[in-house]
């Protein structure tokens, strides 16, 4: 693995930012330790010679299942809106978004 197993604080914060997780100080320390341990452990895969893997066929599987292009109405859309934490006028509600796209 190219990444050092000893993650620093900044690495943890960067990952948490990508994953949209707010961490308090204690959590940052906890995950720095635990992530570090797991990443240290999985480094062992570096030793495995995997050249042969390319010739191994995948688990025998059927061809990908494909769907006929037919519209089927889902009749309980209220159930979907009801599960949202906040709604307005039949829409999912969020605080103002600064448009990026």
């Amino acid at each position: 693995m190219s990444g050092s197993s000893n993650l620093d604080r900044e690495d943890v914060l960067k990952i948490a930012r990508l994953a949209r997780l707010e961490l308090d100080e204690a959590e940052v320390a906890l995950y720095q330790d635990r992530l570090g341990r797991v990443l240290e452990y999985v480094r062992e895969l570096n030793q495995v010679k995997t050249e042969k893997a390319a010739t191994v066929k995948h688990v025998p599987r059927d061809a990908v299942s494909i769907r006929e292009d037919r519209a089927i109405e889902f009749t309980d859309r209220e159930a979907l809106l009801r599960n949202a934490p906040a709604q307005i006028e039949e829409h999912f509600l969020v605080p103002t978004v600064i448009e990026q796209n």
Binding site: M1, S2, G3, V42, L45, N46, V48, T50, K52, A53, A54, V56, H58, V59
Partner: peptide, 14 residues
């Protein structure tokens, strides 16, 4: 290094 490698090892395990 991670996902790619792990999937190769997975094939070998299989």
């Amino acid at each position: 290094a991670f996902y790619g490698k792990a999937n190769e090892v997975r094939k070998l395990i299989q």
